[in-house]
Computed example of a mutant assay.
Amino acid sequence: MPQPMPLRALLAEISALTLHVQQLSRMAGEASALIENGQRPAPIPPENRHVTDQDAEAERQAQSAELEAAILRIFDETFGPRTDTLERQMSMSLIGEIGPAAFVQKVLWGEEISDIALTIALERMLPALERLVEVHPRAFLRQANSVLGRFKSN
């Protein structure tokens, strides 16, 4: 008996996410080896940085604005310049509510029925959103970076 398409799509997304985590793990190992060999300077630990809360907030706002502009470009490239489409209006409302990084996470990795429906509606955008994650991994994979850090320390 064939499985429903949404389940197949969900399984494909889980598989893709697993591959991304494996790639990130491999990259973290390579970066660690480079640092240990002295080929790259080690990153400055957060406690040694002199960044104020205002600096951090300004950086988050700038990054958020950059991500939102990138998402708008992706919409234009994928669906054309029309702003009155249901997909675009719903997406812009959601971006305003949860922010651009959380929006992309919801589209690419969301687990709720509404997330899956959003993913299906924006299916043509998925490759571009995946590239956006590759360009800005720190913005989208904060949780994954902390998990990978724990694996690395073990």
Rank of each mutant, 00 (worst) to 15 (best):
P2V: 06
Q3H: 03
M5C: 00
P6T: 02
P6Y: 00
L7M: 14
R8M: 13
A9P: 00
A12C: 13
S15H: 13
A16M: 03
L19C: 10
H20R: 15
H20D: 14
Q22H: 12
L24S: 08
S25G: 09
S25Y: 13
S25Q: 10
S25V: 08
R26C: 14
A28Q: 10
G29L: 04
S32A: 15
S32D: 09
L34D: 12
I35Y: 02
N37K: 12
Q39F: 15
A42L: 00
A42P: 06
P43C: 00
E47Y: 09
E47H: 12
E47R: 03
R49S: 03
D53H: 03
E59P: 07
Q61P: 02
S64N: 08
E66D: 09
E68A: 07
A69W: 05
I71P: 04
R73W: 03
I74G: 09
F75A: 07
F75H: 11
D76G: 04
F79G: 06
F79M: 03
G80I: 04
P81G: 02
P81C: 02
D84E: 10
L94Y: 13
G96F: 08
G96D: 12
E97L: 09
Q105W: 04
V107H: 01
E111P: 00
E112P: 01
E112D: 12
I113G: 00
